[in-house]
Design a protein around this nucleic acid. Structure first.
Lengths: 145, 145
DNA sequence: TTAAATAAGGATGTTTTTGTCTTTTATTGT
DNA sequence: ACAATAAAAGACAAAAACATCCTTATTTAA
């Protein structure tokens, strides 16, 4: 509903990588996908996007893989979503009207605007690290073994 | 983001039909689509779904068209959304995890649950008639002429 | 009772999203 | 240097969403 599959996989992968960021070894795509139960090649593409957008770091070659810098760990969730879905996604009309605006609102406009703000707040207020910590402390899960 | 195109067209069409429900004539698909700027045949299919779900009424033949009973006008928006997107749409995990639950939550679980409740409240608290009235009183618009 | 109107239904087409496979490029340990 | 490894990139495939067209069924006005 809220997120596309692409975005779901992207968030899950980023959070998993973040949760492994204490280790010195980088995390390979294979391990990531096993742990988030996402399709291998498709997820690799999504991580390419995130890497191009400097939300992840990667290294090719032996012992290469994905990792995150301290700076990247501090990024809010909304940065992931905007990188994947596009910046506009959080400002479009709820009923899909091009012309919808404050002065000529759709019938859902005001209520929807408030919902959208809630969503923005949620995504701006949580860093990737926050999510990763909840994994690490066993408060949350990406996969049930 | 929140709604699929199908759902957007469905809501817009239903609201338009509702806004015409004071008139004695029924509203034809052609008129509906002109006024909500939606594709003719695709929208017709969506209205079939809503009609089958008794959220709209229709009549074939000369002077036929779509209309809504008083009962139908009182339905909350959420009824439209559930008829089109399915009942589950408002209870799925935000990160797409099958196993996500209160006891084994995903890292987004709690915040997302609260957002989802906001959405449910918005959609349960507004009737189709409410939306139609905002059109009729010029407070809101589906199309800018 | 017939022709016109109108929604319903089915078949089909297009586009976007989701997913896979193969090749290329960069890196590194030996 | 070289072989192995791993991400990047590109081509392709499948499924779902979005959209159109044609036929059928129903209703009603003339």
């Amino acid at each position: 509903m809220l997120f596309s599959k692409t975005c779901e996989y992207g968030i899950r992968a980023a959070v998993y990588i973040a949760s492994q960021s204490d280790k010195t070894e980088k995390t390979g795509i294979e391990e990531i996908c096993e742990n988030i139960e996402a399709p291998r090649h498709f997820t690799a593409k999504i991580l390419q996007i995130l890497t191009r957008n400097h939300l992840l770091s990667s290294q090719k070659g032996v012992n290469g893989g994905f990792y995150m810098t301290a700076e990247q760990l501090k990024q809010p969730m909304i940065a992931l979503v905007e990188a994947i879905e596009g910046k506009e996604v959080l400002s479009k009309c709820g009923l899909g009207l091009k012309a919808c605006s404050e002065t000529e609102p759709c019938p859902l406009h005001n209520k929807y605007a408030s919902i959208r703000n809630n969503i923005k707040q949620m995504l701006s207020g949580m860093t990737i690290k926050d999510m990763a910590v909840s994994l690490q402390t066993g408060k949350a899960f990406l996969k049930i073994d």
